[in-house]
């Protein structure tokens, strides 16, 4: 069993879905794009992308296809499916809600601290 905790795994999947929602991409490209989009905030261990990609393929959120790159090499490209796009929506909403709740919680802490 992979050692990543469930939270890390889910976050990684969310990032991958977001990265693919812009355009289909191969594994290395996904890693690059996540780094760019997050302005270097997320440093993904690149190898860990591949088990995640396979799991997501089995979920039906993405599909893959071998294509030729601009440098004339064969690479496996990943595409977001309709189910994947829906999943991204769900993940985003869930994340917003969780973030809001955490923020609210943290703010309450601060108020109490003032008294």
């Amino acid at each position: 069993m992979p050692p990543e905790s469930a939270i890390v795994q889910r976050t990684l999947e969310m990032l991958v879905l977001k990265a693919l929602s812009l355009a289909p991409m191969h594994g290395w490209g996904i890693g690059q794009r996540i780094e760019q989009l997050s302005k270097g905030a997320f440093q993904v261990q690149q190898g860990s992308l591949y088990p995640a990609l396979l799991r997501m393929r089995r979920q039906g959120w993405i599909r893959s296809e071998w294509r030729v790159t601009e440098n004339n090499r064969r690479a496996r490209y990943y595409f977001l499916t309709v189910a994947g796009r829906r999943q991204l929506g769900i993940e985003t909403a869930a994340w917003d809600k969780a973030a809001e709740a955490v923020n609210a919680f943290l703010r309450t802490q601060a108020l109490e601290g003032n008294q």
Binding site: M1, P2, Q45, G47, S48, Y50, P51, L54, R58
Partner: peptide, 18 residues
């Protein structure tokens, strides 16, 4: 190094196949 252990992740992919 950035990839983080080729054989290790290949093995994880094999696990993920189910």
């Amino acid at each position: 190094i950035a990839f983080g252990g080729v054989e290790r992740y290949k093995e994880r992919v094999r696990d993920a196949r189910g």
